[in-house]
Structures are given as C-alpha cells and as structure tokens.
Amino acid sequence: MNRIIRLEELLKEQPEDAFMNHALALEYIKAGEEEKAEKVFRKILSTNPDYVGSYYHLGKLLERKGDEGEAVRIYKKGMEAAKRMGDTHAYNELRAACEYLEF
C-alpha cells in the first residue's frame, strides 16, 4: 500500500501524532508535493513546538522554494526549541543551516 495513504489512514485515528505527521510530510516531499508537506510541518510546529526535527525539514523546504528569509526564521525558532530540549545535535544542524544562509 502507498505509504502516504497508509499514514493518512493512521492519522485518522491519531491526528495529532507528531511522529506520523512528520513521516507524512517527508513522504509528501518524496512525492513532489511540497505544498502539502509545508502545511503538515507547520501544523506539527503549531501544536508541538518542541518537535525539533520538523524545523530543519521545513527550513530546507523553504530554501528550495527560494524563501530564504522565512527559512532563517524557522531555523532560529528550531534552535530555540533544540536549546530548550537540550538537543545539541539538532541545535548544531539548525545553526549550520542558518549560518549558511546568513553568510
């Protein structure tokens, strides 16, 4: 069964599951449906602002769309979340992505 369809079915039972929503957004990206992916990432971060991995992937998506200013904003928000969560690995990845755009 198509992974997108399967994830959408699972999310009917648990619509706020951040992990499954994140997986769905990544599948949308693989399928070339970046607008859908962006909506899912933004939904995740509005309901679960400490789901750090979504900041990186949303930022990269925004970079591909040419919206570097918004990508930097997202990376910085992600860095704040990573710091709150004590996730130094994610913080460093987000910082590197942000610095690449700023310099």
Rank of each mutant, 00 (worst) to 15 (best):
G78T: 09
E102N: 05
A97Q: 08
L10F: 10
V72H: 02
G78V: 09
E68K: 07
R3A: 15
R42L: 09
I5V: 03
E99D: 13
Q14I: 07
I29N: 04
L101W: 08
G59V: 01
H57T: 00
L94G: 07
R3N: 13
F41A: 08
F19G: 05
S54K: 07
R6P: 01
L94M: 12
L11G: 01
E34R: 14
I29Q: 10
K60Q: 13
G32W: 08
R95H: 07
A37N: 09
G59P: 02
N92D: 11
E27F: 07
S54E: 07
L7Y: 13
P49A: 09
P49D: 12
F103D: 13
K60M: 15
N48V: 03
N92W: 06
G69H: 03
L62C: 12
R3G: 02
A81V: 01
A96W: 08
L101Y: 06
A37F: 10
R95F: 13
I44Q: 04
E102K: 11
E102L: 13
H22G: 02
R73Q: 12
L94V: 11
K65P: 04
I4R: 05
E80K: 13
A23P: 00
G59I: 00
E63G: 02
D87Y: 10
E33Q: 14
E63I: 15
G59K: 06
E102Q: 15
Y28M: 10
N21A: 07
M79I: 02
E80W: 05
L11F: 05
M1A: 04
E33R: 10
E99V: 02
E70P: 06
K30R: 13
N21H: 02
A71W: 04
Y91L: 10
R73S: 13
K12Y: 03
Q14P: 00
I29S: 04
I44V: 08
K83I: 01
G86H: 07
F103T: 08
Y51L: 03
E16P: 04
C98Y: 02
D87I: 00
R84N: 15
E9K: 09
L45G: 00
K12R: 11
Q14K: 14
L62N: 11
P15S: 03
E9M: 09
E13Y: 08
H89S: 14
L26E: 15
E93D: 14
E16M: 11
Y56K: 15
C98H: 05
A31G: 09
E16A: 07
R6G: 00
A90M: 12
E34Y: 12
A81L: 04
H57G: 00
Y75L: 09
Y55L: 11
C98G: 01
N21F: 03
A96F: 13
A25S: 09
G78I: 10
Y100G: 11
D67W: 06
